[in-house]
Design a protein around this nucleic acid. Structure first.
Lengths: 343, 343
DNA sequence: CTGAAAGCGCTAACAC
DNA sequence: GTGTTAGCGCTTTCAG
């Protein structure tokens, strides 16, 4: 209505409704503490003035930003963007905004610290396992109520609240699938891992191989980057090998896509010449040719569970408490990129 | 240091540096307005206290949240997540946080309004063309300085600041590519479009067909959903046809992926039996089998340009001005999903 | 060049 | 059930 007046405040509403600003505030946040009649007058006044709360003022007063920060290593990766989708949805439903962080310059924790110290976010959802855990301890939030939920797969015993998947078992299942098909020469493209922390996924690989009495040959273990490029590099290395593995476990689906694609260009067919199993089950996996066998990760659920946990912590009582840990189940999805080894 | 004290304020710094809080504030925001000596004392005091600014208080005072809001129809789609990546990066470099919005309940603009009316965000990056433009006019920001940048492809002459690609030409190029290969029976899976606004992409399709003197057959025009499912549905419809188009233009890459995949299950091979061209060039496109011919959209650049434009508007002078429009170029990427029609 | 003081819009004691 | 008042942490006149 008032095109040229500044945005209405709680005072304006109070004036129109003929009450004090405190009463308006009460009517807004806990309506039951206000009489029926005044509540109605206030509701009308809100409508008449076009009032909406100023979240900044409220946050300053309440010392709560009603905002959470999410740190993701690679937003462009469909795996993470699905998680983000779930987080935004669920946070919004509980009245929280979601700020997206990225790495700033050299120190990856730098940006995160800034957000917290500046009171822009109340809690942190950390999906980036490649951050240095030591540096994390510096975050103010790690003390006390600890509004930080970590969701990654390579820090199994950090004293933090976590949402993770059953990685070690998942990889075991994947490798057992290959072994069950008759493969004995099995390689892997390792996923990226947290500095100075042994990789859970790789541990699962070693375990499965060991149990089956199969050797792990270092020239069949490649370091990936969780992206297509890493799969391509591994494929080129594979092609140069004298003795090649007949099956490959890839740390994620993009890696598998790059590997299969590069091999095809060289005339090597999957699964005829080499079986490949991925990890994640991103949306395109089932539509590839060959359709990708993979371990499905409950990404959407990961986002939901992590959000719920963080918001419960934020809204729950302060004080020391033991860390909470959710472990979600992965699932083997058998498609056509894996088969018995060539004769 | 002070584990149990509340976070330090500007007052604490002032006390330690033996100056007034006003001087600390000045030293922080415009150091040149403070004498060398005091500036140094203040710098030391900041370090000693571990002070960081409280963004909430600053925002309340300055009436600026230093935050932008980005609205994306589908975060899970790699096309949008790449844009988001660029936006977060560039916004952070200029000191802005990025809030991610999603649709809340029935009224899609509802959530957006809330963010603005509540002063949580200073500007809006709108990548969601499916919002109702009329409703958009209600947003307070559309008046005056108009801190809203729209980036989509189907509202060519809205009086708004926009970043778009040369859609009509891009689709023309795509269709001409098919025609150049010898196709005359060409169908399309239309992309989703803004309600009540004619689709630019479809207009490009019609134009190219018309120029080549080719008829547009309605049974060869399918409505997609910008996702794999839409491509699958179109494929099933295609399979049921008596007379089938030999080439298909898809509104985006996921649609093409779904289409090709579903056809393959039915024994129909691309490009042997039907040529398919996509739109976007998402990362996997070149690694598919067949590798997807597509129109590459400069997604990263779209994010960067849109962010720069919005922040320039926010930080520039207020007042009326003509709308700004950036048009970015698409690029035909020929791969193997398109070939001459079957004999 | 610096300090005092006001106030951004809101909520929470504390009165009545 | 409602009003008064103070203050969250910051910036910005206005004096000096």
């Amino acid at each position: 209505m008032n095109e040229f007046k500044k945005t209405p405040t709680i005072q304006d509403v109070a004036r129109v409704a003929q009450v004090s600003s405190a009463t308006v505030s009460r009517a807004l946040t806990s309506p039951e503490r206000v009489s029926e009649a005044t509540r109605e007058r206030i509701t009308e006044a809100v409508l008449a003035t076009g009032y909406t709360v100023n979240q900044m003022a409220r946050s300053l007063r309440l010392r709560a930003a009603k905002t959470i920060l999410i740190a993701i290593p690679n937003i462009g990766n469909p795996f993470y963007s699905t998680i983000l989708d779930a987080v935004v949805q669920d946070a919004a439903e509980r009245g929280y905004g979601v700020l997206v962080a990225n790495r700033l310059g050299g120190d990856p924790t730098r940006g995160l610290k800034d957000y917290f110290y500046s009171n822009r976010a109340d809690g942190l959802l950390l999906f980036d396992a490649s951050l240095d855990l030591e540096a994390l301890q510096d975050l103010p939030l790690v003390r006390g109520n600890r509004p930080l939920v970590l969701s990654c797969d390579d820090i199994p015993d950090a004293p933090l609240d976590m949402v993770m998947t059953d990685n070690r078992e998942a990889v075991e299942t994947a490798v057992q699938h290959l072994i069950g098909l008759g493969h004995t020469k099995i390689g892997t493209v390792r996923s990226r891992t947290t500095p100075n922390v042994p990789s859970e996924r790789h541990a699962g690989f070693e375990l499965a191989m060991q149990r089956a009495g199969l050797p792990i040959r270092q020239e069949w273990v490649w370091q990936g980057d969780h992206a297509i490029a890493g799969g391509i590099a591994a494929a080129e290395s594979w092609l140069a090998l004298d003795e090649r593995p007949t099956a490959l476990f890839c740390g994620n689906d993009e890696t598998a896509i790059g590997f299969i694609s590069r091999l095809r260009r060289a005339g090597v067919e999957c699964p005829r010449d080499v079986s490949v199993i991925g990890f994640d089950d991103i949306a395109v996996a089932e539509h590839l040719s060959p359709a990708l066998t993979t371990m499905r990760q409950p990404r959407h659920q990961m986002g939901k569970v992590a959000t719920a946990l963080l918001l419960d912590i934020l809204e729950g009582p302060a004080g020391e408490r033991p860390p909470i840990r959710h472990v979600l189940k992965s699932e083997l999805v058998i498609r056509t990129s894996t088969s018995a080894p060539p004769a």
